[in-house]
Simulated assay, not measured.
Amino acid sequence: MLSGSPKVLIMYASYGEGHYQASKALEASFHRSGITDVELLDLMAEAHPLLNEMTKFVYMQSFKTMPLLYGWVYNATKDLQPDTSLLSVLNSLGMRKLEQAISSIEPDLIIHTFPQLAMPKLLKKTGLKLPLINIVTDFDLHGRWVHPGVDRYYVATEELMQDLVRRGIPAERVLVSGIPLKPDFGRSPNMATEQLCRLDPSRRTILIMAGAFGVMQGIRDICETLLAKDNYQVIAVCGRNKELHRKLDQELGQHPHFHLFGYISEIAQLMQLSHCIVTKPGGITLSEALVSRLPIFVYRPVPGQELNNALYLESKGIAHIANDPSTLIRQIDGLLLNEERLAHVYGEIDLVRRPEAAKTIVSDIIEQWFTPASSLAGSTSISLL
């Protein structure tokens, strides 16, 4: 162990909540392992707040209004090398703020849950020696994650590991760990609200993440069609979309088999009480569904990492992709009403799910860097003075 308590800096970005959730899951796992000096840093928000808000706005709007353009840009830049001009510029953002943070926090190790890789350039500039770790939070690999200065990668699948090796990263630097989730995923459900106590045990429960990146097109029709059947009940989560919550409550709130939520932190419990999920295919949400052993129905995925995530899980027989309500309903019926197919999907999920990802990552980090036998132990103390 390093002298004193090791200090860990986790860098994330607030483009959606997934990167922050992964960071908090790691923080909790470090704390359970006895490493309590953990700092979280949203580098872009701290270094360039106006630029951060502008890029977040553009990012969200591109999902809603220009999905094909977003997907084209994502796929066109997917195989960029780290020394290209574009990535060099992107990886320079926040350098000064990062240097100040390193000087103030004096971390022993840096973790990225978002590919904002200013650290390799800062290390080269200052001569510091700090282990750098990337935790890829999707089932698809973009070139922004890949840099020769990163010491270790934690990824969701064997295919991602092979992709990193294909891009020149030594296999010994990559561990297939899964994507880190909060510790309440994988546990037995313990939420007993009056609303959920009214769930009918004779019906299949369909969880719809309705508020993901705005209003899901056709969501009311989807809910109404499912509720018209004798064998389904619906849990709809609107997140922070208050207008969608109001509309669904007004139109379907009195239905005895419709359970509506706004923003709720107990997503793990809702997943554990459901038989399938309808969602956008963000890496964190998909991992949560897999750990909860939920068959996945992806509705209108945006081209780019979302569609690529969905296509990967579709190739494994775990996810179904639909772009219109009628196709989605047909897919749900085809799976939930067929016990043999359902059992097959559960088997495929069990081959992919990794419920102990956060624990696996933290244990490996401790073994690699925070024990006496670690090759880099004792070389991570730093100073910018």
Rank of each mutant, 00 (worst) to 15 (best):
G214T: 07
N75L: 09
D37C: 03
L227F: 07
V8H: 03
L290T: 13
I332S: 04
H255Q: 13
N338F: 10
P355N: 11
V302E: 08
S326A: 15
A358R: 08
A156V: 05
K78N: 10
Y153K: 00
V136G: 11
N75I: 02
E53H: 11
P303E: 04
E106W: 01
F297R: 07
H259W: 09
T65W: 10
K121L: 03
P355G: 07
L290V: 12
V352E: 15
G94S: 10
R144W: 03
L294A: 11
T55R: 02
Q269V: 02
V8C: 06
P115W: 03
A319T: 12
N75Q: 14
L86S: 12
T77K: 06
Q217A: 09
R203Q: 05
K182R: 15
L128A: 13
R167T: 06
S292C: 06
D333N: 15
C238W: 02
N309A: 09
N190V: 14
Y153G: 00
W72V: 02
E27V: 02
P131H: 01
Y70D: 05
Q100C: 07
L227I: 09
S375P: 01
S363E: 15
D138Y: 11
L199F: 04
G4Q: 15
N91I: 01
A268Y: 09
C238A: 13
I277Y: 03
L175M: 07
V234I: 12
Y312F: 15
P67C: 10
E288V: 08
G143W: 04
R187Q: 14
L117F: 04
N309V: 13
S287A: 14
N52L: 00
P256D: 04
L244V: 11
L80C: 01
F370Q: 01
A192Y: 05
K124M: 05
W145K: 10
C223S: 15
G143E: 06
R240L: 05
I135C: 14
Q368V: 08
S5L: 10
P281G: 07
L328T: 09
P183D: 10
C238E: 08
S315E: 13
L41S: 10
V237P: 02
C197D: 07
A25R: 02
N75H: 10
L69M: 07
T157F: 02
F297V: 10
E46N: 06
Q305N: 12
A357L: 06
M54E: 06
V176I: 14
S379L: 12
S62E: 02
Q21G: 06
M209F: 11
G262N: 13
L80I: 01
G253C: 03
N134T: 04
G347W: 06
A377I: 08
